[in-house]
């Protein structure tokens, strides 16, 4: 299986990369980890005249806390999340997510930025970042802009990124103490996209009530879904079984899945409910609520 011909560019600086994107416009695609893009090109389901590889651009791979944010460089590999002590100790939801993306070999190449910028509702980080209330940093020759994650996914395989923009960083507000999160995915086997999956991030208040709840749903519609109604419902409530059951029901209501080999609409919707309940329960446990 062989891709159609293209030109490959390997800029050494961000400026060069942006100049190439500006020059080729729609004819160019950014090559990050390449684990979604290259299979698409090999299947000849996607075409590009120019690939701009940001793999040699320095300064795009990091995981650090700074200015009240967890900052993840756009070209940070998934494996780096798995190995990061910071992520392991403080961001269980991101560790959960990294561990179920594709398979370990793919995660050695695949990048967090690529997982978001591909705009695939089946990818796992979008839900996680929705739950965390992240922001995406897009850089172009005109400078940087920050896009709230809930404004980032505009349609199936499309995002708010402009052709001359590169996703250079993801910023996650550092959760308050008594926060916890989980990502629970139903997959047919390792390497599969989710039949359904839920990311839940919860912050508890002094009395154990929910101060903030973030819920993101994977592969539940044409774009990654933020279950706003469920989030709002939980606000201020004790996260007991009754509340979680109702939140899960509301989350499932927000889904608009399509039938495919992974399951029927009904099954996927119900799984969104079941997994949301499980993710919330785990998140609350992490947050110290149970």
């Amino acid at each position: 299986m062989i891709p159609a011909a293209f030109d490959y560019h390997a800029p050494n600086t961000l400026a060069e990369a942006m100049a190439l994107l500006a020059r080729y416009g729609e004819a160019a695609k950014v090559l990050s980890g390449g684990q979604s893009l290259l299979p698409l090109l090999k299947l000849r389901l996607g075409y590009a005249d120019h690939l701009v590889d940001i793999g040699r651009v320095p300064g795009l791979e990091y995981i650090k806390e700074e200015d009240g944010y967890l900052k993840i460089g756009g070209a940070t590999r998934e494996v780096a999340l798995e190995r990061s002590d910071l992520i392991r100790s403080k961001y269980p939801i991101l560790l959960d997510t990294a561990l179920v993306i594709a398979d370990p070999l793919v995660r050695n190449r695949a990048t967090v930025g690529g997982n978001l910028a591909h705009g695939d509702p089946g990818n796992d980080h979008p839900a996680t970042m929705l739950a965390l209330g992240a922001e995406v940093v897009a850089t172009s020759p005109k400078g940087e802009r920050t896009i709230p994650i809930e404004k980032f996914f505009t349609g199936l395989f499309t995002t708010a990124l402009k052709p001359d923009e590169i996703l250079t960083a993801i910023k996650v507000p550092i959760p308050a103490s008594r926060s916890g999160g989980a990502y629970v995915k139903l997959e047919r086997k390792v390497g599969d996209l989710a039949t359904a999956a839920t990311a839940a991030q919860v912050t508890l208040g002094k009395n154990g009530e929910v101060e903030r709840a973030g819920i993101g749903l994977t592969n539940a519609g044409p774009t990654p879904i933020k279950a706003t109604q469920a989030e709002n419902y939980l606000q201020g409530k004790k996260p007991d079984d009754t509340a979680i059951t109702e939140a899960a029901r509301l989350a499932a209501q927000a889904t608009a899945p399509t039938v495919d080999r992974r399951g029927s609409v009904e099954y996927k919707r119900e799984m969104a409910r079941v997994l949301t309940a499980r993710a919330l329960t785990q998140a609350v446990q992490w947050a110290g609520g149970h």
Binding site: D103, R188, K189, V190, G191, D192, R261
Partner: peptide, 16 residues
Amino acid sequence: VQGGSFMDYLLPTAVE
């Protein structure tokens, strides 16, 4: 044909 690639034709891994 449905299930005509390893995306949908599911060979078990060591985990399953």
